[in-house]
Amino acid sequence: MAAEPAISAAGGTARALAATRRTLSLIWSSRRGRIGLSILVVFTLAALLSPVLAPEDPTRDFGSEILAPPSSDHLLGTDGNGADVLSGVLIGARVSMAVGFAAAIISGVIGAFVGVVSGYYGGWIDRTLTAIDDWFLVIPFLPFAIVVATALGRVADDWPGGRVTLLIIVIGMLSWAGTSRLVRSQVLSLKERQFVERAKALGASPGWIVRKHILPNVMPLVFANTVLIVSATILAESTLAFVGLGDPLRPSWGTMLEKANDSGAVATGAWWFFLPPGIGIVLVVLGFTLVGYAIEEIVNPRLRERRG
C-alpha cells in the first residue's frame, strides 16, 4: 500500500498559492482575460519601475524647450513647462494606478463590510444601512467629490501622500454602494443555506459564521467587483485631477491632461502632450474592465455558460 499522504496544519499557504495560480490560468484561458492581463502587466511594470525608467523628474526638470515635438532627446516631446512628457507619463502611471487601486480596495472593504452586516443581521441594522447605501447610490458623484476634495484640500496638504491620499479616501468612500448591494443580496441567499444552519447547530456564534462561512463565500464576488471598480476609480481620479483637484507635486495622468488643456496643447496641435496620458487612461481602464469581466465569469456561475 502506498504511503499515506501526511496531514499537516500548514497546508493553507500552499492551497492559497494553488488557488491563485488556478484563478490566473482561468483568466488567461479567455481571450479578453488574456488581453486585459497583458495590458495590466505592462502598465504595472512601467509604473513600478518608473523611477528607474523615467529619464527626468517631470516635477523638477524644466530646462528644455517648451512644447517641443518628439525628438531623440525627448521621445514624446516636452510639455508646457519644458519637462519630458515620457517621464511624466511613466510617473503619472504610478500615481493614477496607485490611487485607482487604493480607492478600489477601500470601496471593496467598506462594501463587503456593509453588505455582510446588513445582509446577515437584517432588521433595523439592515434598514439603516440600506438607507445609507441608497443615499450613496444616488448622490451625483462629481459635484460631491469636488466639494469634499476642495473643502479638505488645504488640510490634506499636510498628510502623508498629500492630496493623493485625500483623493483615495474621497473616491473610495463614494464608490462602495454598488458593491455592498451585491454582497448583501449574496449574503441573504447564503445565510439560508443549510451549511450555515449546520454551523449554528454545531454551536457557532454569529461572528464565527460570518467569518468562516459567509465571508469566504462572498470574497470571490467582492474580488471580481473590486477589479471592475478599479477602472471606475482610475477614471474618477483622472476627472478630479483634470478639474484641478490633483496633487501638483504628484502629477497623475489627469493632472497632465489638465496642464495640456491649460497650456493650449489641444489648440496648438501639440498631440504628444495630451495623447500619451489619454491613451494610458483608456488602456488601463480597458485592462481592468476586461480582467474584471473575466473574473466575474469565473466566480459567477450564472455567467459561466457564456464562456467560449
Binding site: 443549510q194 449554528k200 454545531l202
Partner: peptide, 17 residues
C-alpha cells in the same frame, strides 16, 4: 448544542463548499 448534534437531510447542501 455540544451535547446534542444534528445530521441534516441533504449532504450536498450541509457542507460549506
Amino acid at each position: 448544542r455540544r451535547r446534542v448534534q444534528m445530521v441534516f437531510q441533504d449532504p450536498y447542501q450541509s457542507l460549506n463548499p
